[in-house]
């Protein structure tokens, strides 16, 4: 197993902490951070080496058809994979004749993927690759990541959305002022607390509200209002539509009290309100997500070991 080392420990920056990271070629790495930090990181990567970053900001040839564009890039980069295979891989075979300016947003994203896939940059760095694309396109992107791993190309994905980081990568990091912090994703290591006795608080369940703090106020949430609860830096955060509110307790504590309201721990760092789950999405590489029925249409990760529990709960199979 070889790896590519990103070393920015000596870089002077007001925003970016010193970072050094090994990108292994056998798995995909993701860095989750806010957009300011991400911009600074990209700037640093560009200044310190010959890496081209995928960002969908540069143009394609709009007058030409999808086929002409891909053919051109295929020839230009001297790609060794046959052209028809590339077209099929990115599911562009049905729209080869279509001029780019008539293509949908998703088809364009796939042309961008195809182009970046064919370039010979090493390692591959993606910035927000699946923002605003549909499920089919995300699946195509996941397939491409798998192909990159098979080809032993180290891959780094920069996102500002934790769900995307967990979905796309095998190893995810959070980038903060203090530095890089690994996000634990193995659901297997989760504490086993299922054999404990049910909480005696059941009798007062009707009165139960979840208290969350915002500045110096305490807001009480009805469990049915909550979309899901995620863990950030060990602290539980209630997410209601676009807003999140921090809780005082940890995920494990809140999980116990909310179980009776139909909440389910679907991932190490997520508890979902099952009443609000609209869709269970199965991605190609045997990973899953839950789509929440809220305005933001959020998707949250569903751990592989937790799929069985969900299926039992909804009597699926």
């Amino acid at each position: 197993m070889t790896s590519y080392k990103l070393n920015y420990e000596t870089v002077k920056s007001n925003i970016l902490p010193p970072i050094s990271l090994h990108l292994h070629d056998s798995h995909t790495t993701a860095i989750y951070s806010d957009t300011d930090m991400q911009a600074e990181l990209i700037d640093t990567i560009l200044r310190n080496g010959d890496i081209t970053i995928f960002d969908r900001k540069d143009g394609l040839y709009e007058r030409l058809s999808v086929g002409d564009n891909v053919t051109f890039y295929h020839k230009w980069f001297g790609c060794t994979i046959p052209l028809p295979e590339i077209l099929v891989m990115f599911e562009l075979q049905t729209c080869t004749k279509k001029p780019l300016r008539k293509c949908t947003h998703f088809e364009l994203a796939r042309v961008y993927y195809a182009r970046y896939f064919m370039t010979n940059t090493y390692p591959k760095v993606f910035q927000e690759p699946i923002q605003g694309v549909d499920i089919k396109t995300i699946n195509i992107f996941l397939n491409m990541l798998q192909k990159l791993t098979e080809n032993k190309t180290p891959t780094l994905i920069l996102v500002s959305n934790m769900e995307h980081a967990l979905l796309l990568s095998d190893v995810a990091y959070r980038l903060q002022d203090k530095g890089l912090l690994k996000i634990e994703v193995d659901a297997e290591v989760m504490e086993k607390d299922t054999d404990e006795e049910p909480a005696p608080a059941l009798s007062t369940a009707k009165l139960f509200k979840v208290p969350a703090k915002i500045e110096d106020k305490v807001i009480l949430f009805d469990p049915t209002e909550i979309d899901y609860i995620e863990s950030q830096d060990g602290k539980a955060m209630i997410v209601v539509n676009h807003e999140s509110f921090s809780l005082d307790s940890t995920l494990t504590e809140i999980e116990k009290t909310l179980e009776v309201y139909g909440f389910y721990r679907c991932h190490r760092s997520y508890i979902v309100n099952l009443q609000k789950v609209r869709e269970i999405i199965t991605w190609s590489k045997n990973t899953y997500s839950l789509r929440i029925d809220n305005q933001a249409k959020s998707t949250i990760p569903l751990a592989r070991t937790k799929i069985q529990g969900i299926q039992d709960m909804f009597n699926l199979k």
Binding site: L64, D68, T71, K75, G78, P99
Partner: peptide, 19 residues
């Protein structure tokens, strides 16, 4: 030459579509 060919082909097609 392969790249020159690629650019030539691309720009020729583009020329034909650019009023």
């Amino acid at each position: 030459t392969q790249r020159i060919g690629a650019i030539f082909e691309k720009d020729f097609k583009d020329f034909m579509k650019n009023m």
